[in-house]
Design a protein around this nucleic acid. Structure first.
Lengths: 102, 102
DNA sequence: CGCTGACATCACCATAGTCTGATACTTTAC
DNA sequence: GTAAAGTATCAGACTATGGTGATGTCAGCG
């Protein structure tokens, strides 16, 4: 399907902890250890969520020695925002017709 | 929390069937029976998802005789889109600083 | 009235997804 | 070399949630 990427991004962003990680990364590039510290979650847990975010194309990694820095990929967020905005606009521009029943 | 509403909207939109319902409603005002027909899901299932969408403020209802018409509330979608767009912009406007490890 | 159809609600089940502990891998410090 | 720290991966337990059938409510129609 065409929108599978955006749907995936939506699904991934729906988790509260991932959502928090994304917000933290929108201000700074951080490595796993910082995220563990900020969120209070276990390292394993953070790492799992980072993988989900990575596979959805929402973040990218930059290994640096034994640390791994994570940063947001704005494009994915931007595409998602645009799609939602389109839906909102479609629903607002006109008085939508009601389909008749039966 | 301040953003609970948006988080809720995200979570609710993450489900594929709800997502499909939202897209259908962006083109027409439909009642439950149309949505059942269009999605192929059971009436109970559609009704449950419509409740989730309603509680998240994404749709509103207009009872009309024994039918209930549903329509999108563009504002909720717009707010969500704006928030995601803000995150994307924050991540893109500058080369984000890396917090030091140790 | 009772009957039918549209929709909502409830309780239950099955599944997906999250969290966790154990463990492996890699890099740096000693 | 060994030890320690940061990160990734894996299997299992637990939880949340979507799907379902049974049932209830309400409006229109005979």
């Amino acid at each position: 399907m065409v929108m599978s990427a955006q749907s995936d991004a939506l699904r991934v962003l729906a988790d509260p902890l991932r959502r928090q990680i994304v917000e933290l990364l929108s201000r700074e590039q951080l490595c796993n250890c910082h995220l563990v510290e900020e969120t209070g979650a276990r390292q394993t847990n953070v790492s799992n969520h980072l993988r989900a975010l990575r596979e959805a194309g929402l973040v990218e990694t930059e290994p640096q020695g034994r640390y791994t820095y994570y940063r947001l990929r704005p494009d994915a967020l931007e595409r998602l925002a645009a799609e939602l905005s389109d839906l909102a606009r479609a629903a607002r521009t006109r008085e939508l017709p009601k389909r008749a029943c039966e």
